[in-house]
Amino acid sequence: PPQTPIRAAMNSIKMLRGDLPSSGDQPSSNLATYFKNCTVDPTQGIQKRLEMLGQVFSQKFGEAVGPHCIVYGRERFTLGVRLYYKVMEAMLESEEKRLSVQNFSKLLNDSTFHMSLLACALEVVMATYEESSFKNRGCSHGEGDQAVRDLCFPWILDVFDLSAFDFYKVIESFIKAEPTLSKDIIKHLETCENLIMEKIAWRTGSPLFELLKREHEAGATEQAEPPAS
């Protein structure tokens, strides 16, 4: 039977929590092996970054929704970290098959990669909760709709001071690596992609302009792609 929007949202949250058990708070033994195989073990760097970003996220969440809701921000961050580790492991397994390598030192020591991946995981968590939590838990202080709007993409980019151009890079690989994503969430990520492609990636300060300038100075030798592709 068709579900009410609230029931559908609650089921999505239940499924998200079910797919991300508490054992995922730390890297799995498989993921830890990828870390150890790196020329430079990224484990400590990843841990420190997560601690720092967790504090930033919770603080910004509280500022957006209300100080009494910081605990919900921490809850969402915890789920985001579990999803981040899960997708990271799946991505590395896929890359290992594709490239026949086990040492991903450069990628796993790239701070931008980790921030982009974590931001994407948190965006999935936020989108899953979007329809139900604030309106049902009384966190709104009379401003429920505004709070939900404030947390919508690209809010997470501002929280992490992450460029849209870098965030965009992880989206497709994220969708490929996580087959349990619902149709609604995939649609949401696609909307984020379109927003970035059409607007946000072209804002002042985007790294895209520097890259385009470098390409232009290097001298384009290939023909431009036809509009169809």
């Binding site: 991903f104 450069k106 990628l107 992880v170 497709e172 969708i175």
Partner: peptide, 21 residues
């Protein structure tokens, strides 16, 4: 995910996107 347009080709992946090839 059948409605999502996958743009990366077979020789492309997260490693290339972050200049780790």
């Amino acid at each position: 995910s059948h409605d999502y347009h996958f743009g990366l080709e077979e020789h492309e992946g997260i490693s290339e996107l972050f200049d780790c090839d």
